[in-house]
């Protein structure tokens, strides 16, 4: 179990966890270009292959398989994929072997997949978040930590369980050295549920909306699968006059709609009145390199406009 003894950024936290895992747990960390300029945004400790920091070849599909094999060997590998868009290659062995191994043969295959997203600027590779492709498959835990303490929580879960885990990271989280608390207010108009980097814009949007006389709750979603819908989520949505808005840095036709559906099912299944939840993520189109053709997670302005739209389309606020 790791302890946070001093304030550190997410990048420092990841590096600390990795260092301890390699030097104290006989762990492994594998990936491509780990020791290149920047050491993956400062998240990789300066260790050697002998100490467990393993450079893989540039073959993504086999890299995923090699990491899964290392997990079967009991090394609890941290598998680092520098761009989430590359998961279209890497996912095969992770979802089809690691995630099924326990169900199929009773053999756990704990692998910690660090998958790093960024906001646009990379054209059709679309290295936004791609956790939806993992969420739809059984046998894998999916989460999106954005703070050092959340990262520690996620790591502790990994070390205390034997599930493969997909960590949907975001480069914007790397310099973050503070916690993000849920915002729950009496008589809220809308509850915003936010995932990954959209949480940063959502915090700003809540402030802007408050200035416009609109009261919003904000619930940060760390654990995406299994998606545990707690009392706070239900109470917050139930008490919001106009319903909810859920935000993600993955495509809108992905996990977002499943999560929104699950929340609504739970809400109405608990005997509450139906409340709509609108979704906002990447648009259903390919991203281009030119800035005006990029496909970005919802901006603060877009979130504000969408909340106002929800309120207006449900009857204006008195």
């Amino acid at each position: 179990m790791e302890e946070t003894t001093q304030k550190m950024t997410v990048a420092e936290k990841i590096s600390q966890i990795t260092r301890n895992h390699l030097l104290k747990n006989n762990g492994l960390a594998l990936g491509q270009c780990l020791t290149a300029v920047g050491w993956v945004g400062g998240t990789i400790p300066h260790l050697s292959e002998k100490e467990g920091l393993v450079e893989l070849s540039m073959a993504d599909v086999s890299g995923g398989g090699i990491a899964v094999g290392a997990a079967l060997a009991g090394r609890r590998p941290i598998y680092i994929v520098r761009y989430q868009g590359f998961q279209w290659y890497n996912a095969a062995s992770i979802v089809n072997y690691a995630a099924k191994s326990k169900d199929m043969w009773g053999i756990p295959c704990p692998i910690f997949v660090r998958s790093i997203a960024m906001d646009g600027a990379i054209g059709p590779v679309a290295s936004g978040s791609h956790h939806s492709i993992f969420i739809r498959m059984p046998g894998i835990v999916v989460c999106a930590p954005m703070t050092p303490n959340e990262y520690q929580q996620v790591w502790n879960y990994f070390m205390e369980h034997d599930d493969p885990m997909y960590i949907s990271e975001h480069k914007k989280s790397f310099p973050i050295d503070y916690d993000m608390k849920d915002i729950i207010k009496p008589k809220a108009d809308v509850t915003i549920f936010a995932i990954s980097s959209t949480r940063i814009n959502a915090i700003e949007a809540v402030k802007t909306l408050e200035g416009n006389g609109i009261v919003c709750n904000l619930i940060h979603l760390l654990w995406l699968k299994p998606f545990v819908i707690n009392k706070k989520i239900i109470a917050s949505l139930n008490q919001s006059r106009f319903g909810g808005l859920i935000l993600d840095g993955d495509f809108e036709n992905g996990a977002l709609k499943c999560l929104a559906f699950d929340i609504i099912q739970k809400l109405t299944g608990s005997g509450n009145k139906f409340k709509p939840i609108k979704t906002l993520g990447l648009e259903e189109r390919s991203a281009g390199f030119a800035p005006h053709l990029d496909n970005l997670p919802p901006t603060t302005g877009k979130i504000v406009k969408t909340v106002e739209y929800i309120i207006n389309s449900n009857g204006k606020k008195n």
Binding site: L28, V54, V61, S62, G63, G64, G65, I66, A67, V68, G69, A70, A71, L72, A73, G74, R75, P77, A92, S93, N96, Y97, K100, M104
Partner: peptide, 18 residues
């Protein structure tokens, strides 16, 4: 797992890890 040939990279990873 049923994906043809995926046992080969997994075998290589097992050798690397063990």
């Amino acid at each position: 797992s049923g994906l043809m040939g995926d046992q080969i990279p997994i075998a290589v990873g097992y050798a690397l890890g063990s």
